[in-house]
């Protein structure tokens, strides 16, 4: 694993993707493997977005997991698609490991049926700000730890 001096920096690592066929982009992004709410049928690639406060869940994934009607905190977010109403809710995210040990964290997700489907984002304030992570772009390894 990735070490910080003598200490473990990470507990696991996985391969990340630069692109997703279902979400074409003009430049490379970082898509990492996660599982939601401890349900293996929910394994998806989610885009790391350190510029966003909140994580956003693809409404199709939310619907398939029965999370569209969660009793969360209603709010409106200003997004690149305009003002969108939805809820903020805490979900269990598991960062899946190819090597080492998976990491579970609760993260705050914005869920709205009005969000364009096809992509899930992992935002900074509600999730990534309280965990360790690092990227090795030469090998496409995503390192993560508590």
């Amino acid at each position: 694993m990735f070490k910080l001096g003598a200490l473990d920096f990470s507990c696991g690592r996985s391969l990340f993707r630069d692109t997703l066929k279902e979400a074409p982009e003009s430049t490379a992004k970082v898509f990492v493997k996660i599982q939601l709410e401890g349900r293996s049928e929910s394994n998806i690639y989610a885009q790391i977005d350190t510029g966003a406060a909140w994580s956003v869940l693809d409404p199709l994934v939310a619907k398939s997991l029965g999370l569209l009607d969660l009793d969360g905190q209603r709010t409106t977010l200003h997004t690149r698609f305009g003002r969108i109403e939805g809820i903020l809710a805490k979900l269990l995210v598991t960062f899946l490991a190819d090597d080492g040990i998976a990491l579970e964290k609760h993260g705050t997700f914005f869920i709205s049926p009005d969000w364009p489907s096809g992509r899930t984002f992992l935002g900074y304030s509600g999730l990534l700000a309280s965990m360790r992570f690092a990227l090795d772009p030469r090998t496409n390894h995503f390192y993560f730890g508590p």
Partner: peptide, 23 residues
């Protein structure tokens, strides 16, 4: 209480019981 929940920072937990994903 809802704001408390969504604004809370939580610690991560290693879970060795989650099966390794694979290439």
């Amino acid at each position: 209480s809802r704001w408390e929940r969504v604004l809370a920072k939580t610690k991560g937990r290693r879970n060795p019981e989650v099966a390794l994903d694979f290439d």
